[in-house]
Every structure is written in C-alpha cells, then in structure tokens.
Design a protein around this nucleic acid. Structure first.
Lengths: 303, 303
DNA sequence: AGCGGTTACGAAAGACGTAAGGATG
DNA sequence: CATCCTTACGTCTTTCGTAACCGCT
C-alpha cells in the first residue's frame, strides 16, 4: 500500500470505472495504462479496507460499499474542483462537464432552450441534460444540478426555490356539456385524468380566502406523464389538475376551460438543488442563473 | 509544479499551518521537514493559482482567499476522513479529534457532563470543548459539531433539532413588592434585565391560546451573559426572560417567580449542526447521540 | 481466440531531507 | 543574532508503461 498516490486521483479513477463499467475504458479516458487504473483501484480498496467493485473476469459490479463510496467520491471531487476553480481567472473560458436533471415536461418545453442558449454561449462546457420527474440519487449519479417540482428528498443538498406553479382544474368543453360545476363538491360526478406523482386519491382545493375542499373523483386514467393527462383532458376523458404554464394557450383558445376559477390546487414549488460546496464552479453558478431566469419568465409560474 | 503530490495532503498541510501560524510548527506536527511543508504550501498555491498566506519573514497571515480556502479545505478533509473511516471495524477503538462548540450556559451547566462521559468512554478521542453563543465560522475553525440555541446561519450545514427551550418572565419577590402584574401590559412599569442576543428592545409574549403582546420595558442592564441577567433578576434589578431549565430550582424554592404563568416568550430551538458528509465519522455520530440524550433529559426542555 | 483484469520488472519521475541563503525583529 | 521561510542538490522512494499471465465468453 503506497502512501503518496493522490487520494482524489484514486477516487476519480474509481468513479470513472464505475461510470464506464470497465477498467480499460476508464484507463483510456484518463490516458493511463489499464495496469495503472487497475492498481489504483486496488490501492483505493486497500486504503478504505473494503471491496468496492466485485470483479468477475468480464463484468464489473459495484458492491454496496462501492455505491456509498461512489456518492461520497463524487462529492469530494466536485468540492475539489470548485476549490481549484474558485480563484482562477474570471474571464477564463469555461470548460468541463455539467450534468443536469430537470422535470420532464418543464424541461422539454421550456428549460431546454435556456440550457441550449447556455451551451451556445459557453461551448467549452459539455452538458448532460436528463429529464426525470422522480427522485434521483444525486451524488451517486454524479449530478451537478437538480431542478425538481416538489420537495427535494436529500439532506445533503442545498435547495434554492425557483418559483411556484399555479395549478387549476381544467376540462374540455365537451366533458362539461354545458353543466359546468360551480363548486368542488359538484366535481365528484366527473371523471379525472390523474397525474400520479401529485394527485393521489384525493385532490385538495383552496380558495384564495383560505377555504378548503377535498375531491375524490373517479379516475379512469392515472398516469405519470403530463402529456398523457393533457391529451385525456382535451379528449374529454376527464378533468385534470394542470399547471397553468402548461395549459395557458389552451385556456386562451378555449380548448380547455378553467372550470373552477375560484379554486386552486396547492401550488407546487420548483426547486434547484445542488451540493453545498460554498460557491460552486462558475459554470454551475451561471447555469443556475440561466435556469432561474428561464423559470421566472414562464407565464403561470410565480415567485 | 508537481503532479502526483496528494492534494488532500496539501490541504491538510495548509490547514495545519493556518492553525499553528507557522510553517515550522506545522512541519513538526506532521513529522516532515520545514522545507517539505514550505514546498507543499507553495505547491498548493501554485495549483490554485492564488496566494493563500502572506509571509513576512517572521509572521504569517492568511489572505482573503486563504480564509475561503481554509474553510473548504476543512470540509474536504473531514469528508475524506469520514469516507476512510466508514468501512473500518465497528469495534475498532475510536481515535482522533472532535471540536465542539456549544452554548455557554447550557454547555457549562449540563452538556459538559455528557461530553466528559463520552470522553471517558472513548479515551482515544480528544475533545476540544468550546462554549460560545454567537455564530461561528464552522468550517474555517475546523469545527465538527455546533450546538446552538436559535437558528444556524450556515447553508452548508445539516441542522438537527434537539429540542426547544421554554422561556418565561421571572422576577424576585422583592421586585414585585406584592404588586405582581397579571397582564403583560402591566409589565411596562418594571425594569428589565435583558439578555441581548435574544431580547432586543421589545419582548414578545404569547399565551397558549395564541394571544400576543409586546412589551418594551426599561432596561437598566443589558448583557450577553445569562448568569449576569440571572443575578440581576435575583437582586431585584428587574425582571428577566429566562429559560425554564435555567431557573427551575429557583421557581421551586420561591427565589424567583414565574410572574405571568399564562404568558411565554417564544420557545427557542436548540439545534445541532454539522457537515453533511453523509454518515460522519463514528465518533461524531456517537457524540451527537450523547448530546441528544443530554438535552432531552434536561427539565424545562421539550421536543 | 479475444477481450479484460492482474502481476512482474525496468525505467523515469518526483518528493524528501540536508544544508545553505536571506530577511526580519 | 536568533528565528523562520525559501531554494538548491543528491538520494531514495514510488509510480508508470510494457509485457507476460490468467480467466471467462
């Protein structure tokens, strides 16, 4: 067991191996020999006194300890990177990678444009743009920024609120057939196209005056995909709880109707989450600002 | 500029130098030559492309960048340490340092015993036990655990609530002279011994029913030291806002009187704050549990 | 066979300590 | 002038790549 081999290099090598699923590939990435990469992995395992990767001749698998270590390694590496970059030239061209996870619908309809503008302005930065609504394992996957609708279930992250999405009950004129409900209690008679992460069996509605009502409608379709719920609402399969930003144009064209304009579902927070390395890398800080700007520019999203 | 020198070693050396205020001393601590320590510092500065320590021949001073770097270095080092220790033997004897900051009064009257019991049970761990009520720069001073009454103004820390201190208006019988106020509005006629971090010019009181009243008393003495405020209350200099745990025995003996038993000052949270390295070192985890137990055992502190 | 991981060995690079030089109170 | 930091130099440790070896598909 050596003493002087850089511990962060060891971790970086390990993370690369975990990412590529191969020692050879990781070695190529780093311009070192397979032998070195293999040795460094062994060395890390020796220092931590634990087996990180279970090797069968042609396939690598992270052990449980390996998963834990990977998450921590990623944290350490980005901390160092943030430190190393902190004092560099402000005008230096930015380089490096940025891995972003954002909500599916918001991401593909709005944020992707902001992301692409950013990339155009900073061609040295290579983006990994992943759209995913469900909670992720931030550190383990090596994420840099996570934009999420709803709470951020990770104690180790700093959460910055970007805004709130106003949500309303919408339906197609066809569904209502002229008999539009005027109070949530009348909603129970209508079917609902439910968006599963947000609406469970019950939908809670509030007035701005603080009045509350619970609706437990029939749900002929439940989905985790807002486009599907949207199609259902347009086809008249049922009403749906929709964010204003998503249905704004349909409300204006009349394709969908805000059937209970006095009542709103609870506003959902849009959060940006990231590692607490005091000030992060400049490329991430700028990216966050881009996202903040993009989110606040969306009609139907409030502070 | 070298390539293979361990970056964490560089940071550790820098932190040691900052702590000891001398390269020679830091070198002795680490059993390396002064030359090495000096070189490593220069090397770190080269890699970060910034001057960290301003050297005049006989005195060292951290630059602004040095302060920032020190905080981040401490974070990185404890992350690595937590990682390195994570997979070790559960039964291994614990060693290392633990730097704790706790509130003055709570620390010296209650928590110190828990800390000493911990040290006795784990003689390999050396504690640094600092009592300080004001906000600290956690990472820069190399703290491991910060117990604080009130909010924790540091975004990079994980905050765990330990309990709440009930606070009441107390006074000596001498002060009241039989004319005990029965409502906060009658309190304005009495002088107040104010505890500065908590009571500003106004004291807000609530009933359990939710009623609120503000009192802005005369303050013949204001202090940041609860023992002084306590002495003032006992001597009849004025009434005081006191945590129940602090005056419990005086209330029972009648030396102090809970003069408005229906009214309470806002309960203050007791928080434990620490770095978010997923699971920390075992010694810190155990210490936190000791603190939690000690705090909940105190009469007058509620969950 | 062919691909991927591990181990052995010689070569090269880098870090260490000693020691000399320089600056300050 | 004593102390502390920096720089130069020779030695020694350590790591690297090449290459041989081994195991699985």
């Amino acid at each position: 067991m050596s003493k002087t081999l850089d511990r962060l290099t060891l971790l970086a090598n390990f993370a690369r191996i975990a990412e590529r699923g191969s020692i050879s590939a990781a070695a190529r990435d780093q311009n070192i020999s397979q032998a070195s990469s293999s040795r460094q992995l062994a060395e890390l395992e020796a220092r931590l006194a634990v087996s990180l990767i279970h090797r069968t001749t042609h396939t690598l698998a992270l052990t449980e300890a390996g998963h834990e270590c990977l998450a921590e390694a990623r944290r350490l590496l980005s901390s160092w990177e943030a430190l190393a970059e902190r004092f560099g030239d402000e005008d230096a061209k930015m380089t490096g990678r940025l891995k972003i996870v954002a909500p599916v619908a918001l991401g593909q309809l709005h944020l992707v444009r902001a992301a692409l503008h950013y990339q155009k302005a900073h061609p040295g930065v290579s983006l990994t743009w992943l759209l995913e609504d469900e909670p992720i394992r931030f550190s383990e996957i090596g994420c840099d920024l996570w934009v999420r609708i709803g709470p951020v279930p990770d104690e180790t992250l700093v959460v910055q609120p970007l805004g709130h999405v106003e949500r309303m009950i919408v339906a197609s004129p066809a569904l209502l057939k002229g008999a539009a409900p005027e109070h949530p209690s009348q909603l129970a008679g209508f079917p609902c196209a439910a968006l599963t992460p947000f609406e469970g069996s019950a939908i809670r509605l509030n007035t701005s005056a603080g009045e509350t009502h619970h609706v437990t409608p029939n749900t002929p379709i439940a989905t985790n995909n807002i486009f599907s719920a949207y199609e259902a609402a347009k086809m008249g399969t049922g009403f749906a709880v929709m964010p204003r930003w998503f249905v704004q144009s349909d409300l204006q064209s009349g394709a969908l109707i805000d059937i209970l304009p006095e009542w709103r579902a609870a506003a959902l927070p849009i959060n940006a989450a990231f590692l607490p390395a005091q000030r992060q890398t400049r490329r991430l800080r700028l990216f966050r600002e881009h996202m903040q700007t993009a989110v606040t520019a969306i009609e139907g999203i409030t502070a």
